[in-house]
């Protein structure tokens, strides 16, 4: 896939993450402590996975820089979603995002058919998005 397409996809993902953050921010008084912990872990992990795989496919020559970048993105996403609720939630989200962000570029650089796995990871992201919105509305 071309680099430009990958970067457009990454921009759309960042926009969707922002939309979800605003949505959760407006309804954060409805959300209990268990659901908050699950939201922060899931969003940190998925953001780190997307950033790692898409960035290593776009720029395959900078392995260590992209590993550090995607770990930082995952930790920041986990912290941002966790700080809406609690300090302990923030700690759990940061750890999970960092761990997935370390592993994601390694996964991205061994792929031989990258199109399918990009499709799968975006499907996972949209599924998480819908599931979080449904479970906030039910609570």
């Amino acid at each position: 896939m071309k680099e430009v397409t990958l970067l457009y996809l990454l921009t759309i993902d960042i926009l969707l993450c922002g939309i979800l953050f605003v949505y959760v921010f407006r309804r954060k008084k409805w959300v209990g402590i268990q659901l908050g912990m699950n939201i922060s872990q899931a969003m940190g992990g998925v953001a780190a996975l997307l950033a790692g795989i898409v960035l290593i496919l776009a720029f395959p020559f900078h392995f260590s820089l992209i590993t550090i970048t995607s770990a930082a993105i995952g930790a920041a996403a986990g912290a941002a979603f966790g700080l809406l609720f609690d300090y302990q939630t923030c700690l759990a989200g940061v750890t999970n995002g960092f761990m997935v962000g370390i592993m994601a570029p390694m996964l991205g650089s061994v792929l031989d058919m990258p199109g399918q796995i990009i499709l799968f990871v975006h499907g996972l992201f949209l599924f998480c998005f819908l599931f979080i919105i449904i479970s906030i509305q039910r609570s």
Binding site: F61, F63, S64, A71, A75, S109, V110
Partner: peptide, 30 residues
């Protein structure tokens, strides 16, 4: 680095100590 099919030209540029250093700083922060 050949385990991950990282291209050979960038294997020399990939230094061994950057990722452990960043990870240990993060560990101290946590």
């Amino acid at each position: 680095p050949a385990l991950c099919r990282i291209p050979v030209e960038s294997a020399a540029a990939m230094d061994l100590s950057a990722i452990p250093f960043a990870a240990s700083c993060f560990y101290a922060c946590i």
